[in-house]
Amino acid sequence: MTNVEVEPPWVSVDPVGEALHLLRMTGVFYCRTEVSAPWALEMPPFGDCLSFHVVTSGSCCLSVADAPPQYLRAGDLALVPHGRGHLLESGPQAGQAGRVDLLPQEHLSAHYSILRHGGGGEKSTLVCGVVSFEGPAARQLVRLLPPIIHATGADRPASAWIGGTLALLASEVSDLRPGGEAVTTRLADILVIQAIRSWIESDDPQARAGWLGALSDPLIGRAIAAVHREPGRNWTVASLAHEVAMSRSAFASRFTRLMGEPALQYVTRWRMHLALDRLEQGRTTVRELANQFGYGSEAAFSRAFKRMVGVAPGSVRAGR
């Protein structure tokens, strides 16, 4: 008897959209940067954070190791994931770069400053920032991003959303008004998410590989979304296959081919990354996590956690 894969009759969900919805982003620092040519700024590495730069007037060149330099014009946005150090400059022979965290700045709050720098020539204005992502979905996604994401208001399909938000941001930084800091930082956060979404919808093959590719699959994506929604459910290969109306063998083969690991291994890894996130935030105990994820004992949960994460859950909680 031949196994036939049948599309489930219910309305399809959007697993990629659900993954984006799970992104939790925290602003580490934001800076309104007013520069005049010639100028050069060095952004040091920032751990696991993502840096972004929005050019609201003028232009600049962005350089990141192992990636082609990007020329940014007014209305452009660039993301530099993975916490990598990089260089912003007015152009060739801009001179010695100043490290942004060591240059004099006007601090309007603990997380927002104005930086003025340069040689007095042609002026440019940027909104720059460093943000961090929390949660397993965010970490999984950020790991897949390329060294630079360069988006503009003219890009398709991003134009309607990114272009409008860029225009709002440019208007806000041109004339700081009461509450301007809050408006600027929130618009910048929106732009970061929009740029990531635009890249996912682009023709970049990397956006269709691995975890993202599996999420985009009409069948496997639904199974992954079900695991994300109910991580504590007693999942088996058979129950996951039933969730998307596939045979057990066809589902197991397709999942492993797209994800690069068996389905139940992904279920365990997702649970352990959720557990790590909750332990780091101090919101739960090892016993509560063992119960939530269906383990018969703390010992069984701890063994699974250490196998996936590399350290015991108790040490994570103690070192928080």
Rank of each mutant, 00 (worst) to 15 (best):
N3K: 08
N3D: 13
V4P: 01
V6D: 00
P9Q: 07
V13A: 14
H21E: 10
G27A: 04
C31E: 15
E34V: 14
V35P: 00
S36A: 13
A37S: 10
P38Y: 04
L41C: 09
E42V: 00
P45T: 01
S57K: 08
S57F: 06
S59Y: 02
L62C: 09
P68N: 08
Q70L: 06
G83F: 09
S90I: 02
G91Q: 06
Y112H: 09
Y112N: 01
R116T: 13
H117S: 11
G118W: 03
T125Q: 15
S132E: 14
P136G: 01
A137I: 04
R139S: 13
V142P: 03
D155W: 06
R156H: 13
S159P: 01
A160N: 00
A170R: 04
V173D: 14
D175W: 05
G179A: 01
G179S: 02
T185G: 10
L187Y: 13
D203I: 02
L215E: 07
D217R: 08
D217H: 15
I224C: 09
V227H: 08
H228T: 07
E230T: 13
W235P: 12
S249I: 13
R254T: 13
F255D: 10
L258D: 06
L258C: 03
E261H: 00
W270S: 07
H273W: 12
L276S: 02
L279F: 08
E280I: 03
E280L: 14
Q281R: 15
T284F: 04
R287M: 00
E298H: 04
E298M: 08
